[in-house]
Amino acid sequence: MSTDQPPPGQPPEEDPFLKRPQEPPPPSAGQPPPPPGGGQPPPGGPPPGSPYGPSGGDPYGSSGGSPYDGGMPPPPPPYGGYGGGYGGTDPLSGMPPLAESGRRILARLIDWVIIAIPLAVIGIPFDIYARATDDGNDFGDTVNSLNGGSQLVFQLITIVAYVAYDTVMTARNGQTIGKKLMKLRVAMLNDGSTPPMSQSLLRAVVLWLPALICCACLWPLLILILILVDKPYKQGLHDKAAKTVVVSVPQ
């Protein structure tokens, strides 16, 4: 179960995908509105005909009667979007539905290809393919046999490329190219706004850095499993770290 609850904050008004406040439902027919002043009798006693009774005593006592005689009290207003807090209410209220896992996977594959193809071209001067076709050597042996300095430089270029791409695109409008094609968007869990640069960077670092340094297969698999099983927000480790969710873009 996901327990991340991000800090409240006032979202910027220019974000077109923010949560929208919900209007409270109109009172049903025959149901009187709640008394003014937060349910307290006015100073000096209630006026004639007040639901607090003629004597100005306890509005719920035997002499004054209930202020809601003849009907039930009105329901509490629904979560308003911007300032409702998290006291048992769903922070996704007012936001688009969560993204389907299959579309998230496709979007990530598209982003990976978009970055991997230029990196494959950039890697030519670093001789990353110098011995890839030699007999008895696989690609892993080739990488490990490279000059240490060239290998380190190319690895740093790879890390910067993936992290910078994800950070800049997410901070701009919450969408990488893959997410835009799949009609998805990254949003802050607390208010639905576009993640700021700091949260976008944190999200990208947690997403890419372990995979590019030591856990090329295990880390993406772990993130995918969490997205599939996490309830109720479908958050991967990178989403939990940045307190974000991935939602569908309204049509």
Rank of each mutant, 00 (worst) to 15 (best):
E14A: 13
D15V: 11
R20F: 06
Q22G: 14
S28L: 05
Q31N: 15
P33V: 05
P36K: 11
G37I: 02
P43K: 14
P43G: 05
G45E: 10
P47R: 14
P48I: 13
G53F: 00
G53Y: 00
S55V: 12
D58R: 15
Y60L: 08
S62W: 15
G65W: 03
G65A: 06
S66F: 03
P67M: 07
G70P: 01
P78N: 14
Y82L: 09
Y86P: 01
L92W: 00
M95K: 11
P96A: 12
A99M: 03
G102K: 05
G102P: 08
R103V: 00
L106C: 13
R108S: 08
L109I: 03
I115D: 00
D135H: 12
G140T: 08
T142Y: 01
N147A: 03
G148L: 00
A161P: 07
V163N: 01
Y165P: 10
Y165D: 08
V168M: 05
V168L: 07
G174Q: 05
M188W: 02
G192W: 06
S193L: 03
L201Y: 07
V206L: 01
P210H: 00
A211N: 00
L212E: 14
C214D: 07
L222Q: 10
L226I: 12
L228P: 12
K231M: 09
H238G: 02
H238A: 01
D239P: 02
T244Q: 04
V247A: 03
